[in-house]
Nucleic acid binder design. Structure first.
Length: 861
DNA sequence: TACGCGGCCTAA
DNA sequence: TCAGTTAGGCCGCGTA
């Protein structure tokens, strides 16, 4: 440690104090766009750059803060008083100033929410277009130009996983891509991520809007304010997710560089640890060629997944699983590259040596019979591969895994010890133990990688899987045959057991569950351990990898937790309405155990959909776009179709690979394939002739998942739909429907006097047909239904656009101008399906009511 | 109408 | 110039 100078000591001290000594700089560009087009660096100049900088320094370390003020005017003309603004004369000066700022602050990480087409990427491309050297001057080393580059090539992988921008000495973070691996969301726009993670709503302004504001002196500040908000939120997101410290911790743990944690795969991490250990034993890893890898014997074993006894269980089901089964197996049976003797039958009848093993060859001692002398001691896996006993040689992988698992236990212990005192230390320890768990679990994956694996070995992979299978099978047998448990294994997948305990109470289930865990653990060598996980009461086993139940993790837990695996409540390929209806239905079923309540609930929701009273958002699907070359030639999927449409209009509008593309389904001529009915949500808002396809949503999206659950109880969900009144008789019979007396129809509270079609007085006319609607029209309008439908449809669309607009603006109002004149906030029920929240909206309430009323009138025709 | 296939997403 | 694995369910479409 002779080279540890004072700066190094300072750094260590900083770590102890919870400081990372890092500077992050987030950038957004404002580019004045041509109408309806997105910025193009070849043509559109940057009009403004907005930065936000954070530093993680202890207070006694001086920061270059004072430098910011030098040469910068504090400008109030924009209306933003807390913003330091610097005017420059030309775009070239702007770039120079940006470079100066970067070199002054010397940030370690350059951040942008989207750094390929916006932010730093736009800056670099603009520099290229103007002939200003930017890339090299942003790097940290004099010869930076060589090590830094801004990729323009068509590399699907690079585009999808990295920022594509490399600057020597600095890390470039593409925030939205990081978010993609942080949380499973419907959409990864800054607006939705900020809402989901920071619970902050921000408006989405189009480039056209931002440009319009920028061009007028009085509104220019809005554009800057919005971009600054984006910068700050991006940094807030990283902070909230603890992303930089967590990544740094993983880098230390695996002994790899910070950026490699984000950009490289798990293989790299395993190798980094494994090679370190192997070197101490004077071993190196083989480097098989592509041909050798291709010639490797294919894996033959697959994990055991039982076909579940699928039904609704109203008595306890205990779930147990083996703790880190595969790593435990490798430790317990000494499975490793360095201990493998190949197939046992080859030891008995030695073929000409060396013989094929993994991607390479194995050379045994001249007389393999010697080895056979200790055949009783050997670990022979169920697939017939022999491994040395640890007495003879302890494998590298087992040693590594053992160290990892032990370290993890230590870390978890100190996590417990440190209590609530030190939040930052807790976070570090927590991410360390998570990282350890992760690396333990992918070590198996490393041995059985075949497509891209660097050192795959199907013999080891197969041994682990076959041993895992054997362990699970023997455990099942034990549980099923135990005399006093009276238990039945009803499902199991790879390393888990679902045990049905009929006639037992919840607390009895906990006791028996612990007994099972202990008894099974006793059957196997250390560290193989079956762990009691949870009791389900009740639960629904649908199919392999799909189940749901109320979960209790401790005997004294009073309120159960809804726990679903694989079903639509946890999937992102349906629309939110599907997940909400399904989850609420299951809650009702589990809580009240009364199918008729579920039926009432579901029918109310179906009516909402038919009446168009479900928000557009709840009916919006979103699927990942794979990039233009990511599909088969004939592929015909919504995401690709919409992406093509957008790209035709504006090449810069093509979604990034990995981005989620939203779409809805509208009505169309009968017989049309579904793909023809796909529309972008904003198109539907803008086009009065388009209506959401209620029939599709009900029969193809909402009901099938529900049916798969409730069919297990012998309920025919589809009948619930067919017995509902058709739209033509909807309003007349609404009041006879179960539960509708307390139904949420806003129209019932809305009694217009003037005809909503033409404005004539309707009070003189005879009363309408039902309580809910119909009386809003005069006789003349009722007489010409087509015309009225058309007129109302258009009005409806206008209201919906207004509501949408207000929704956007009201968000910004709440933040930007609390003092907005005459802005009377009104409590309105959220229109989302059963959302318990009420949202503050300005004016939106009235427009919403009008829109809903019109829509229910439309259903009359 | 059954079946295979591509696409998408999740469990482990 | 790098990319852990397989199983499995379900949707929509085209074809025999």
């Amino acid at each position: 440690m002779a080279y540890l100078d004072t700066a190094g000591l300072e750094w260590c001290r900083g770590l102890l104090l919870g400081h990372e000594f890092l500077t992050l700089m987030c950038l957004e560009c404002h580019v004045a766009t041509r109408p309806q087009l997105l910025p193009d660096p070849q043509l559109d100049p940057i009009s403004a750059l907005v930065f936000s900088i954070t530093q993680d320094l202890p207070p006694e370390i001086p920061s270059p803060q004072h430098l910011k003020v030098a040469g910068v005017d504090l400008v109030t003309r924009t209306g933003l008083t807390d913003l330091a603004v610097l005017h420059v004369d030309s775009e070239a000066d702007l770039l120079e100033e940006a470079i100066r700022l970067v070199t002054t602050w010397d940030p370690d990480m350059l951040v942008g929410y989207e750094v390929q087409r916006g932010s730093w990427g736009y800056l670099l491309e603009r520099g290229l277009a103007l002939g200003v050297e930017v890339v090299a001057r942003l790097s940290r080393v004099p010869e930076g130009a060589r090590a830094s580059h801004h990729l323009e090539e068509e590399d699907e992988y690079g585009t999808e996983h990295t920022s594509q921008i490399h600057l020597a000495g600095r890390v470039v973070l593409n925030a939205w891509r990081l978010m993609r691996s942080e949380a499973a969301l419907q959409s990864y726009t800054l607006q939705s991520v900020a809402f989901q993670i920071l619970h902050t709503r921000i408006p989405a302004f189009s480039h056209t809007q931002l440009t319009a504001w920028w061009l007028a002196d009085t509104t220019r500040g809005r554009t800057l304010g919005h971009l600054l908000l984006r910068c700050r939120l991006t940094l807030d997101l990283l902070h909230r997710l603890d992303l930089v410290p967590r990544t740094a911790e993983l880098a230390r743990l695996f002994g790899i560089q910070f950026y490699d944690v984000l950009s490289r795969g798990t293989q790299f991490r395993v190798e980094s640890m494994m090679l370190r250990l192997a070197r101490g034993r004077n071993m190196v890893a083989i480097s098989p060629s592509v041909q050798q890898r291709a010639a490797m014997k294919a894996p033959e074993w697959i994990p055991l997944t039982l076909e579940p006894l699928s039904r609704f269980y109203t008595e306890p089901v205990v779930v147990l699983d083996f703790q880190s089964l595969y790593p435990s197996v490798m430790i317990a049976y000494n499975y490793c590259y360095s201990t493998c003797l190949g197939r046992i039958h080859l030891l008995h009848n030695p073929p000409p040596q060396p013989y094929s093993f993994g991607t390479a060859h194995l050379r045994l001692p001249p007389d393999p019979k010697q080895l056979l002398e200790m055949v009783d001691e050997m670990n022979v896996s169920p697939c017939g591969v022999a491994f040395l006993p640890s007495r003879v040689r302890r494998g590298v992988l087992p040693v590594m895994l053992e160290e990892i698992l032990n370290t993890r236990l230590m870390v978890k212990a100190s996590l417990k010890r440190c209590g609530e005192r030190d939040a930052s230390l807790r976070r570090v320890l927590h991410s360390r133990q998570l990282g350890l768990k992760l690396i333990a679990n992918v070590t198996y994956g490393y041995t059985s990688a075949n497509f891209s694996g660097r050192m795959p070995c199907s013999e080891i992979g197969d041994s682990v899987v076959s041993k895992g299978r054997e362990i699970l099978e023997r455990s099942i047998q034990l549980v099923n045959s135990h005399p006093t448990w009276a238990a039945q294994v009803v499902y199991g997948d790879t390393d888990s057991l679902f045990v049905h305990l009929p006639g037992r109470s919840r607390s009895q289930a906990f006791v028996t569950g612990q007994e099972i865990a202990a008894a099974v653990t006793k059957m196997y060598p250390k560290p193989i351990k079956l762990k009691f996980e949870k009791v389900y009461l009740p639960c629904l086993l649908q199919t392999k990898k799909r189940y749901v139940g109320y979960m209790y993790e401790t005997p004294d837990q009073q309120e159960p937790v809804f726990d679903a695996k694989g079903i639509e409540t946890v999937r992102r390929d349906g629309c939110p309405a599907v997940a909400k209806v399904l989850e609420r239905s299951l809650h009702l079923l589990f809580d009240r155990k009364d199918v008729s309540l579920v039926r009432q609930y579901v029918q109310r929701q179906l009516l909402k959909v038919m009446q168009g009273r479900v928000s557009l958002q709840d009916l919006t699907f979103a699927k990942e776009y794979r990039g233009a070359r990511g599909y088969r030639p004939g592929a015909c999927v919504p995401a690709l179709q919409l992406a093509r449409q957008w790209t035709r209009r504006d090449p810069r509008k093509e979604p990034r690979a990995g981005e989620r593309v939203p779409y809805v389904i509208v009505y169309g001529a009968p017989g049309l394939p579904l793909i023809q009915l796909v529309r972008c949500p904003s198109t539907v808002l803008a086009d009065a002739s388009l209506r959401l396809n209620a029939t599709y949503y009900i029969t193809h999206a909402i009901l099938p998942p529900l049916h798969r659950c409730l069919a297990l109880l012998g309920v025919n969900v589809n009948a619930w739909y067919t017995e509902l009144p058709r739209p033509s008789t909807l309003t007349a019979s609404t009041s006879t429907l179960p539960g509708s007396s307390s139904g949420p129809s806003i129209a019932r509270y809305f009694t217009p006097v003037a005809c909503v079609g033409c404005g004539a007085d309707t009070t003189a006319a005879p009363a309408g047909r039902g309580a809910a609607g119909g009386q809003g029209l005069c006789g003349g309008c009722k007489g010409s239904p087509q015309e009225t439908v058309l007129r109302l449809g258009e009005r409806f669309r206008t209201y919906e656009r207004a509501v949408d607009h207000i929704r956007q603006v009201s968000c910004s109002l709440e933040m930007v101008c609390e003092a907005c004149v005459g802005c009377r906030l009104q409590e309105v029920e959220c229109i989302s399906l059963d959302c318990p929240l009420t949202h503050r909206r300005t004016m939106a309430g009235r427009d919403l009511q009008a829109a809903h009323h019109l829509h229910s009138l439309l259903d009359d025709f």
